[in-house]
Write a protein that binds this DNA or RNA. Structure first.
Length: 576
DNA sequence: GCCGTTTTCGGCCCGACTGTTTTCAGTCG
């Protein structure tokens, strides 16, 4: 039973209890446990084996026993009882916007609805009329909610949300009277996926700002358009929509609104609790004591009034940000001095060596390492040793002509099924820098995958493990892997672990990168760019690193070219 | 069900919006 399994079951139990009408605080405590376990970078089985379950946030004696029961029997008595009583398929209805536990219970008890299919049939047959507390408008709302559910693709990737936000913010900034536009929500926190976009603005003419927003050509449907808020479905690709909310807020309470709408919800709850302890109240208009405003203009003022340093948005997840102050030298995009994993037309990139070098120089980088695929990645046109030798000459020739930017020759060498590498050591030894990645056979068990990765790290020429878990967000799960063991071996062997900055990967993900830092493994943030545009994705890798509270010193490619070469030599010279 | 330099019992965040309502319940973020 994996962490995800346990988390899912606790979340389901919470939903079922809520439909049954249990105390909301008891329900929430199950949700809290689900979230804690989902967030956990290490295997819950090991924590249970060490008897440390009650040390986890929100896990008390009762939850610890239930987790133990799940891990040892694969079942949970409470859940079995609940599903005997309440049809499990009712949980589908939770996804419909505007439908919560009370309405679900009503539909089930009064009309015998047990699933989404039942609900659609009942709507079709007009069987919902006459329900107490559910008028015509509510019925219409449910219909529209189902339509929305069936059309929407759920959460979108960070890269898509960021592109949409950039575009809308840009148009709003060019609107008369608009003085400031900022993204908030999970986009600002740098989460790997975004449910909807939250934008804030200060405008002299709020009506004009909202109208400009709701009349953007890509807007498919306007959900709300009031004095202070506009809400639309924005079509970013054919048949693909994202909900975007724009709020116009007063300048004097911009900080409070920005803090409030950035979230996370859990972070905000903790913050309001802190306010309450001092007899104050915190909402989107400010931090107040009775009628008196204590802070509202900037986020910094609000955090300071509550006795906290300003907490960077990426850390606002109610993990440890209230107990551990954010590091002074939290990584920024400006700290990044080069990219050590990019492709060219020689394998499966779409831009040439020269084009990639020019683009990297334009970004102000100090170094760029060409890392095309190796021969086993045939689909990606992987290089044979002979082709790599030839590319090496070309890169070295270009490097001699290039000023201000070190151009290095490397490879993204395949880690084969048995953990050996796709190129011989003799060839690897001639390269400046080596990234090793798994591209095939990811379906094996955790022990096998971990063994393969560790074998690669034990090769003295391997400097980075590329996209260590192999996940593709929304497309492919991470492979089964003992991340803790990999971090320890990375630290021991002097091998860095990649945060692949591609918005499709972001792998290592935030919690894994956090574990790497705690275990002393160095992280390297690379774009794996297959085109010059993709060099831009470095920002997503940095956001992920910030969510892991990484300092610039935790990241290899914040170092100077000479220091990178020293890092490579140190491993090559290491005594076995 | 969890949790505690105000508490081991009695709390547990806050406001907006909507709909079905004459004072509130449900949902959402």
């Amino acid at each position: 039973m994996t962490n995800a399994d346990v988390a899912r079951i606790f979340a389901e139990v919470a939903d079922l209890l809520e439909i049954r009408g249990e105390d909301v605080f008891r329900v929430n405590s199950y949700r809290r446990v689900a979230r804690t376990i989902e967030d956990l970078p290490v295997d819950i089985n090991e924590i249970a084996a060490r008897g440390e379950l009650t040390g986890l946030p929100g896990v008390g004696k009762g939850s610890a026993e239930k987790i133990q029961e799940l891990l040892s029997t694969g079942k949970l008595q409470l859940r079995e009882e609940l599903v005997r009583e309440i049809p499990e398929s009712l949980l589908e209805l939770r996804e419909i916007p505007g439908v919560g536990p009370k309405k679900i219970a009503l539909l089930w008890k009064e009309r015998g609805i047990r699933s989404l299919a039942d609900l659609k049939a009942a709507l079709e047959a007009g069987k919902l009329a006459g329900l107490k507390g559910l008028g015509d408008k509510s019925i219409q709302q449910i219909k529209e909610g189902i339509e929305f559910l069936e059309r929407s693709a759920g959460r979108v990737r960070l890269g898509i949300a960021a592109a949409v936000a950039d575009l809308i913010c840009d148009r709003l900034r060019r609107t008369r009277g608009v003085r400031r536009v900022e993204p908030a929500g999970s986009l600002r926190r740098g989460r790997e996926t975004v449910g909807d976009l939250d934008l804030l603005c200060i405008a002299d003419d709020p009506d004009l700002a909202i109208r400009t927003f709701t009349e953007l050509p890509e807007v498919g449907r306007v959900l709300a358009a009031g004095q202070t808020k506009g809400s639309v479905l924005y079509q970013y690709a054919p048949g693909q929509s994202l909900q975007v909310d724009l709020r116009v807020v007063p300048e004097e309470s911009f900080g409070a609104a920005w803090q409030y709408f950035t979230g996370s919800k859990e972070h905000n709850i903790r913050l309001r609790e802190l306010a309450l302890k001092r007899g104050w109240s915190l909402n989107e208009y400010g931090l107040t004591e009775g009628d008196k405003t204590i802070a509202s203009r900037t986020e910094e003022e609000i955090y300071a009034a509550l006795g906290l340093p300003w907490i960077p948005p990426e850390l606002r997840e109610d993990r440890d940000e209230f107990d551990t102050p954010p590091p002074e030298d939290l990584l920024t995009l400006e700290d990044i001095r080069g990219d050590l994993h990019v492709h060219t037309t020689e394998s499966d990139g779409i831009h040439s060596l020269e084009e990639m070098v020019v683009a990297a120089a334009a970004r102000g980088y100090k170094y760029l390492c060409i890392a095309d695929h190796s021969r086993s990645s045939t689909i990606a046109n992987g290089l044979t040793p002979q082709r790599l030798e030839k590319q090496m000459e070309e890169v070295r020739r270009l490097a001699r002509k290039t000023r201000g930017l070190k151009v290095w020759i490397g490879t993204e060498v395949d880690i084969l099924a048995d953990g050996s590498l796709d190129f011989p050591d003799e060839l690897l030894s001639k390269l400046d820098f080596v990234t090793a990645s798994i591209h095939s056979g990811m379906g094996r068990d955790a022990a096998t995958n971990t063994r393969r990765t560790i074998a690669a790290m034990q090769n003295r020429y391997v400097n980075v493990i590329g996209h260590p878990t192999g996940r593709l967000i929304g497309r492919r799960e991470a492979m089964a892997l003992d991340i803790e063991a990999i971090c320890r071996e990375a630290a021991r062997t002097g091998t860095a672990l990649e945060i692949n900055a591609s918005n499709l990967r972001l792998d290592l993900k935030d919690q894994h990168a956090r574990l790497a830092r705690e275990l002393g493994a160095l992280v390297c943030i690379n774009t794996d760019a297959h085109s010059i545009d993709e060099l831009e994705e470095m920002r997503f890798g940095v956001l992920t690193a910030r969510r892991a509270a990484l300092r610039s010193t935790d990241v290899l490619n914040t170092r100077s070219p000479a220091e990178i070469m020293k890092f490579v030599q140190a491993k090559r010279n290491k005594k076995k």
